[in-house]
Simulated scan of single mutants.
Amino acid sequence: MDASLTPYHDHHLELLRLAREHEARLAPALVRSHPDLCLVVAQRLVASVKAHLSMENTILYPALFGAVDADIQLAAKGLEADLGELKARLGQFSHHWTSAETIRLAPEAFVQTSKDLLQTLRQRIDQEKARLFPLVERA
């Protein structure tokens, strides 16, 4: 593994752990009875994803855009361009689910938007691991 990618691999593992923790609290009965707990776990995940994306946007992707290897540049530019869906879902999620009361009032919607966000997050991590990281590690 390229040592420069170690923090990103580690962050991905942590994000996936937080995603599993959030997902484990998406049983409708639990969401209805403990929206406060669901909110805390969801906010922890959202904050971690935002911090990770900030790190990628300010450090990783700018460095890869200047890479000597054209395949790395192309993959980085493509993945950066595809980042919009995750950012949009993340923004919508964090702006809508701001309190336990919003979750209590619409538990089914909270569960569905959570699942959509988790799917988008996992797809993004899978794309970076499959398309970008192997190129960087071989360079």
Rank of each mutant, 00 (worst) to 15 (best):
L5M: 11
T6K: 15
P7G: 05
Y8F: 15
D10N: 13
D10C: 07
H11D: 07
H11F: 00
L13W: 08
E14Q: 13
L15A: 02
L15F: 04
L15G: 00
L16S: 03
R17P: 00
L18C: 00
A19T: 03
A19P: 01
H22F: 14
H22P: 00
H22S: 09
E23K: 10
A24W: 02
R25Y: 07
R25T: 05
A27V: 10
P28D: 09
L30G: 02
L30W: 08
L30T: 11
R32T: 05
S33E: 15
S33C: 08
S33I: 07
S33R: 14
H34G: 06
H34C: 13
H34W: 12
H34F: 14
P35W: 01
P35Q: 04
D36Y: 07
D36I: 04
L39R: 05
L39I: 04
L39E: 00
V41D: 03
V41R: 06
R44T: 13
R44W: 05
R44E: 14
L45Q: 03
L45T: 00
V46E: 03
V46C: 09
V49N: 00
K50M: 11
K50H: 12
K50P: 00
A51L: 12
L53H: 02
L53G: 04
L53T: 01
L53R: 05
S54C: 08
M55C: 10
M55E: 14
N57F: 09
N57W: 07
N57G: 14
T58C: 08
T58M: 10
Y61E: 02
Y61D: 00
A63H: 13
L64M: 13
L64I: 03
F65I: 03
F65T: 03
F65V: 04
G66Q: 15
A67T: 04
A67N: 08
D69F: 06
D69A: 14
A70T: 10
A70N: 03
I72N: 04
A75S: 14
A76F: 06
A76I: 06
G78S: 12
G78T: 08
G78Y: 04
E80V: 08
A81R: 13
D82Y: 08
G84V: 10
G84Q: 14
E85F: 09
K87D: 11
R89I: 04
G91M: 11
Q92C: 12
F93R: 05
S94T: 12
H95A: 15
H96T: 12
W97S: 01
S99R: 09
S99C: 10
A100I: 05
I103W: 01
P107D: 10
A109C: 09
A109M: 10
F110G: 01
Q112D: 14
T113D: 15
K115W: 09
D116N: 14
D116I: 02
D116T: 11
L117Y: 01
L118C: 09
Q119M: 12
Q119P: 00
Q119C: 09
L121C: 01
R122S: 11
Q123C: 11
Q123S: 13
Q123E: 15
R124K: 12
R124A: 02
D126Q: 15
D126C: 11
E128W: 01
R131A: 07
L132Y: 00
L132G: 01
L132D: 01
F133T: 02
P134G: 05
P134E: 08
P134Y: 07
P134S: 08
L135K: 07
V136H: 01
V136W: 02
E137P: 03
E137I: 06
R138D: 09
A139V: 03
A139M: 09
A139Q: 12
